[in-house]
């Protein structure tokens, strides 16, 4: 029972990790970033690259990937997404195209085969939590996602950028009237979301196969977490990651991994249909 709970928590923390970046972009700008999964993939390849050629320690790859994919996100916003704010459905298509481009660039440079990432020794064993053994790496994933979550909360609620960002997400026109540079705020928001995707990619690379197509499953997963959680609430995203992690682990225990995934997606469709604002949305107007 406790094992199942821990496994659910562990799946939930992965979901939270990959969904966080999408939440920042989608929740505040309404932009469907279909390249999100491929930014996660890029983060994983940053790890591969820095370990192999620069011999950077694993945990140091986190800030590296964050900065790299973040800058890329900034560029994507400046060059492409910025032109599409008036046609949101087209941002979905354009970012999808960007995802295809990223995937092909990686395939051309690193090849289509699987890549290995070496995890530091102190993360390979088991740690005992409350009398139960748990893979240390899972624990690390959990801790990193909590840390990133706290970081996002701090940025949103304690910094100047965060305040501007929240203002722009509520009403871009009035924010502009108050002297906020809306374009700049949006570019930084996109960069933040993309950077978080990159950081998630580093952690994912430690327990999952790194290959050019790995992103497509993450983008669907992240969307489901964000949509179930309610578009503009961080707490909702956390709750839905935990809930979906739990459902996934219970269903996987009852049937198998594949059907568990299918049930999860069906659940998400039902939530979109019956609770368009998400299960954990506090706004009731």
């Amino acid at each position: 029972m406790l094992g199942s709970l821990l496994s659910g928590l562990s799946i939930g923390s992965v979901l939270l990790l990959v969904a966080l970046g999408l939440m920042v972009i989608y929740g505040t700008m309404g932009v469907i970033n279909m390249a999100h999964g491929d930014l996660v993939m890029l983060g994983a390849y940053v790890t591969v690259f820095s370990q192999r050629l620069l011999h950077v320690p694993f945990l140091l790859c986190l800030p590296l990937a964050f900065v790299f994919t973040g800058s890329l996100g900034w560029l994507i916003e400046r060059l492409i997404v910025r032109r599409l704010y008036s046609r949101l459905l087209d941002t979905l298509l354009a970012t999808w195209g960007i995802g295809i481009i990223l995937q092909q660039v990686i395939r051309l440079t690193f090849g289509p085969e699987l890549q290995n990432v070496s995890v530091p020794v102190f993360l390979t064993g088991e740690t005992r939590v409350g009398g139960i053994g748990m893979p240390s790496y899972r624990l690390a994933v959990f801790l990193v996602s909590v840390a990133l979550l706290l970081g996002v909360v701090a940025i949103l609620h304690r910094t100047d950028l965060g305040m501007r960002l929240r203002a722009v997400s509520q009403n871009p026109q009035i924010s502009a009237c108050h002297g906020i540079d809306v374009n700049q705020v949006r570019a930084w928001t996109f960069a933040l979301g993309a950077g978080l995707a990159g950081a998630a990619g580093v952690m994912v690379s430690g327990f999952n196969a790194v290959r050019p197509t790995m992103g497509s499953s993450y983008v669907v997963d992240s969307f489901i977490v964000v949509v179930v959680g309610g578009v503009s609430s961080l707490a909702g995203t956390v709750a839905s990651a935990a809930l979906l992690g739990g459902v996934n682990s219970v269903m996987a225990w009852l049937t198998n991994d594949v059907l568990a995934k299918a049930v999860l997606l069906l659940l998400a469709i039902a939530v979109i249909r019956f609770f368009p604002k998400g299960l954990f949305s506090a706004q009731a107007r």
Binding site: I32, L88, L89, L92, V220, F223, I224, V227, N256, V258, L259, K261, A262, L265, L266, A268, I269, I272, R273, F274, P276
Partner: peptide, 25 residues
């Protein structure tokens, strides 16, 4: 249900993923 725009796209995307998983399974 009044679902529109982007959500239709997400739902149809989820459907093809589900169907693919089930057929393979």
């Amino acid at each position: 249900g009044g679902v529109s725009g982007v959500f239709i796209s997400i739902i149809t995307l989820a459907l093809v993923v589900i169907l693919n998983l089930v057929v393979i399974d």
